[in-house]
Design a protein around this nucleic acid. Sequence first.
DNA 1: TCCATTTTCTTTGTCGACAAAAAAAATACA
DNA 2: TGTATTTTTTTTGTCGACAAAGAAAATGGA
Lengths: 234, 234
Amino acid sequence: MTHDDSSQITERKRGSGVKLVYDLLRDEILDLKLSPGSAIDEVQLAARFGMSRTPIREALVRLAGEGLIETLPNRSTMVSNIDFLGMPAYFDALVLMYRVTTRLAAQHHRADDLLLIRERQAEFSAAVAAQDALAMIATNADFHSAIAAAGRNAYYASFFDRLLGEGRRMLRLYYQSYEDRLPARYVDEHEEIIAAVEARNVVEADRLGKAHGEQIVEQIGQLLTRNDRLDIDL
Amino acid sequence: MTHDDSSQITERKRGSGVKLVYDLLRDEILDLKLSPGSAIDEVQLAARFGMSRTPIREALVRLAGEGLIETLPNRSTMVSNIDFLGMPAYFDALVLMYRVTTRLAAQHHRADDLLLIRERQAEFSAAVAAQDALAMIATNADFHSAIAAAGRNAYYASFFDRLLGEGRRMLRLYYQSYEDRLPARYVDEHEEIIAAVEARNVVEADRLGKAHGEQIVEQIGQLLTRNDRLDIDL
DNA sequence: TCCATTTTCTTTGTCGACAAAAAAAATACA
DNA sequence: TGTATTTTTTTTGTCGACAAAGAAAATGGA
């Protein structure tokens, strides 16, 4: 198994190596370029990136901290499996975070937040137009991450980011099975969300966040039997 | 500055060093034995634990991943400061997690969960009786963590654990200023929560979780001016 | 005495090497 | 041929050493 990477072993700034490996590996995992369950070899990575095992190891420790890889003591390291049994729990948390972050954005956003949010929405819209599934998933996550940032709650934001990251893998599976064709409906829903946030309409933002989340969940969750998500009424 | 630790440099199992350092350092940080902002010296720690810098470093990376320490590139590593400005956001998230985890525990708990929860409650009750503030804070966190585990949502549970950890530092400050005397009221509230969970009374569990959280927040949050917590009505 | 520049010192980031642990392969024995 | 035991291989965990990057101290000039 060869890794034809034409890997440019260029001069790197001290300390930048870890971030490089971390970011790249994270993307590869979330985009399913590294399939769940596949083994990760430190020496191979070291060779690929032209550095020693030490920075590789640090990147792996951080990825393990996020649950993206799993480490068997003294034995193999591998890409975490997608926890299908945990999907109901995942969607429950995801929808709640959709709600909460959108609601808080309506409350606490500042003028320049909207600029960033609109940028993300433009990127998402472009990805939809280009029918690029990977880009759609990533830019959709960025969009909601920007919303969360505008909500000014770092705890929700980081939790939400983690959920969105984990979700990228599941969504990839989903859109793969639907031939990379994605409803442009999400673009419209995003626009509605932006409008509600801008108008500081908290109730409407909450409702839209919840609806948007549930809409996505429903499309995916048809496969699932169990359906006892948390449903706090408004 | 000497570290008189009578450090037993005994033979350790391969791979156990990291966890040892991580656990101990985490506890020392959360119990404020290491004050926020204080520097962390890798070499000193290596000497103290009788091991090389490598496993120390790995433990520090993990702690940094949880936000408990901060690393200035190429320069110092230090215990994270408590983010007082972020406290409203923190409490907002904390109360919501109190609610959600208690509610889910009422829905999804199994018989043996209650045994564990009661154990934790007994420990908390003992700590209150002994007027041991540190133990109270730790066992209270354990109690709610057990509730969260019974809720069968790993995402909420891990997020909640992180919040409870972060909270240990704030609570320590709070109880310090109140002369380590803590209302036994929490013990009763815990009992009510257990009863609601056992009865699978979801609405009541939700209400109690919210009330319990808000009660704690109010006691601490009097100091804070801003008070625009998320308030989803039931 | 005060400030700019150079030198030393401290602490981190990276490396190559080696030992421990577990798995895989090879061997011995019935 | 099938199974238990030994040997080899693979991969991780740990170590000591060194180089880079700042900070602190020392030096020099006005």
